[in-house]
Design a protein around this nucleic acid. Sequence first.
DNA 1: ACGGAGTCCGGTAACGTTCCCGGTATTGAT
DNA 2: ATCAATACCGGGAACGTTACCGGACTCCGT
Lengths: 347, 347
Amino acid sequence: MARRPTIIDVAKLAGVSKSTAARALTDAADVNDVTRDRVRKAAAAVGYERNHLAVGMRSGRSGLFGLVIPDIANPFWAEVARGAQDLMAENAASLLVFSSDWDHDREASHLRALRQARVEGAIVNPVSDNVDDFGRFGVPLVLIGSSAERFPDTPSIGSDIRQAVRLGLDHLNERGHLAPALILGPRSRLARARFLRSVQEHCLERDIDPAILPVEDADYTFEGGHAAMGRLMARQPLGHLTVFCANDLMALGALLAAREAGRECPRDVSILGFDGVPSGAFSWPGLTTIEKPARELGRRAAQALFDEIAGRHATGRRYLPCRLIERGSLADLSAQTPLKIAAGGRI
Amino acid sequence: MARRPTIIDVAKLAGVSKSTAARALTDAADVNDVTRDRVRKAAAAVGYERNHLAVGMRSGRSGLFGLVIPDIANPFWAEVARGAQDLMAENAASLLVFSSDWDHDREASHLRALRQARVEGAIVNPVSDNVDDFGRFGVPLVLIGSSAERFPDTPSIGSDIRQAVRLGLDHLNERGHLAPALILGPRSRLARARFLRSVQEHCLERDIDPAILPVEDADYTFEGGHAAMGRLMARQPLGHLTVFCANDLMALGALLAAREAGRECPRDVSILGFDGVPSGAFSWPGLTTIEKPARELGRRAAQALFDEIAGRHATGRRYLPCRLIERGSLADLSAQTPLKIAAGGRI
DNA sequence: ACGGAGTCCGGTAACGTTCCCGGTATTGAT
DNA sequence: ATCAATACCGGGAACGTTACCGGACTCCGT
C-alpha cells in the first residue's frame, strides 16, 4: 500500500523543483516546453494525481458544491439533482448531495457539513423558516422550489406556477371544462396558496366566480388524493366530474378512486395533474399533466451559482415555464356542451 | 466579506494556544474542563467551523466518499443513492454523486475526480470492462449491481437474482402458471444471462423443459417491452398468456401492448415484473413484481466500505434477497386448470 | 525537601499545493 | 564587451489543522 505520489515525487523524477513541476502541470507560463513535457511524462509515470484538498486549502477553491433537497429518491428532486450535477461535471466540479427529509435539524446539520467541507456554493430547497440560516450562510447560495419564496433576499429559482396554472386552465377550457374541482395540498404549505391564488386569478379573467369551484384538501400523497376524490364524488355524484390536482401523486390517487367507484376516466371523470412524474405515463389512462422543468431547474440553479461566484450577482427570483403533457385523462367536452357558460347563457 | 474564522482566532479569544484549542474542540484528553468550556464558548462566539480540507490534509481522512451510478434520475439508482447517503449522514461523512450514463469515458473521468478529491472510498456500478480501472483504483471500492460480477477480486453487492427468480416462478406456479413466456434484456448484458440461467435451473427442478418457454429479446425500455409483447401475442394469439419480464419498464410496456390488442390483464394475460419501480403501483392493474432492495443495497454498500476502511476485509460478492409485491397483474389459474402440466408432460 | 507521578499546556513540524520573489542564464542591442 | 531585457527555474512561505514532544505546575508520599 504505497503512499500516493505527490508533486515532489514528480519533480524529483523530472529533475526539477516542485515549483516548476506545479507550473508545468497547471499550464502556467514561465516553463520551457521541453521541461513541461518532461514533467508531464514524469507525472504520468508515477501516476500522479493532484490533491484537491491541498489545492483547495491553498487557493480557497475546493471544487466542491452542495445540494440539499428533501429526498433524492423522489423523482422530481432526483431530476433536479441530475440537472445540477450535469452542469457541475461540465465545469469540473463535484456535487455533495444531501436529503433533508423535510426535517429542520437534518437540514441544519447538512448545511453545517457543507460549510465545513468548504463548498464554493450550495443549492438548497429550504425547509427551515429561519432566514438567518440562509442570510448568514457565508457561501453563495441559490434556493430552489416554491418554499424559497419566503427568502426574497436570496437568489432563487422555481417553476412558474402562474403560467402553469394558466396553461392547465386554458387547456381545460378548450376542451369544455370550465369550472374544475380542485384537490390542493395542506393549508400550511406556501405552494398551496400560490396555486389557489393563480387559479382564482385566471378564473376571474374568464368571468368565472372562483367560489363555485369545489375544493378539497389533501396532503400531496397518493392516499390523500384518493380520499379527496372520494369526497368530491360524494359531493357530485352525477355528471362529468373534472378535477385539477395540485400534484401528480394525488391525481393518480384520484384516478384510482374514480375507477373503484365505477366512474371511468376520461368518460365520466377528467383528471389533470401537476408535476410530470414518470408514473403518470404508465397509469391507465395516461395522466394528462403539467410538467415542471425539473432538470432544467437544477441546471439553472447551478448556473446561477457559477454566475454568483464569478461576481455576476443575479439576486431575486427567477421562474421557469412549465409544459403541458397530453395523455389520456381529459375528456373532450367542447362539442357536446357548446359554450354552456361562456358568452352569457345559451344552454 | 470577512475571512472565515480559524482555530487561531478561537485560541486567541480563549487565551490559549491553537494546540489547546484543537484539543478542546476534538474532545481529546489533556485539557482542563474549564479551559475546554472557554474554548467552546469562544468557538461559538466567533462562529468557528472546522475546515475539513485542512483536517483531511493533515489526517489523510477527507470525510468524503464517492458514488458513481448510471443515472441518479433513474428511480432504482436514486434509491440506491438514498440508502448510501443515509449511512453516510449517520457517520458524519459526505457523498459525492456522479452519473456515468453508461459511458466509459464519463465513468473514467468521474473516478479520476473522486481520486483527486481524495475520497476515502467509493461505490461504483461499473460500466467499464477495464479491470485495471478498479483493481488499481487506490482507494477502497465496493461495486454494486449485476455488472459487478465481472470483477471477482473486488468486493461487490447485488440483488439475489436466483432467489428472485425462484420467488417469481414459485408464485407463478402457485397460481397455475407453469411455463411463462419471457421478455429479456439484450444479449450483451450480463444480467440477461443470469436471469435466463436462473429460470432454466428452476424449471428443471420442476421437471419443465426450459426450451418450451417462449423468449423475446428487448432492451429494458418501455417501448422494447411493448414491441416484444406484440411479438409474443402474435406467436400465441389464443388462450391465457403469461409473461415474466426481466424488468418493470418492459412489463409496463407489455401491459399497454396487451390492452391495445384488446387482451385484458389479468383476465387474458398475466404479467410479472422485476425491479419494484414506483410506477408499477400506479398502472392498471397494478403490476405484480419482484422488488430489488435498492435502498438496502446502497446502505450495505456504504457499510461494506466503512468495514473495509476499518480493516475488516470482506472481499467477494454478497447477495441481498428480493421481495415479491402482489398487485393485480396475475390471474389465478390454479382452480380452472388443475395441474395441467405437472405430473408428467401433457401439454 | 525531594523525587515521581499526573495534569495541563505551548511550540513546532508536517500534510501537498501554489504564489511570490529573487536568482541565473540567455539573448539582443549598443 | 557591457548592459538591459527576457526566459526560465528554485527557495521559501503560506493555507488550517493535528500529532508529537517537552515543559511547567500541582500534589502526594517519603
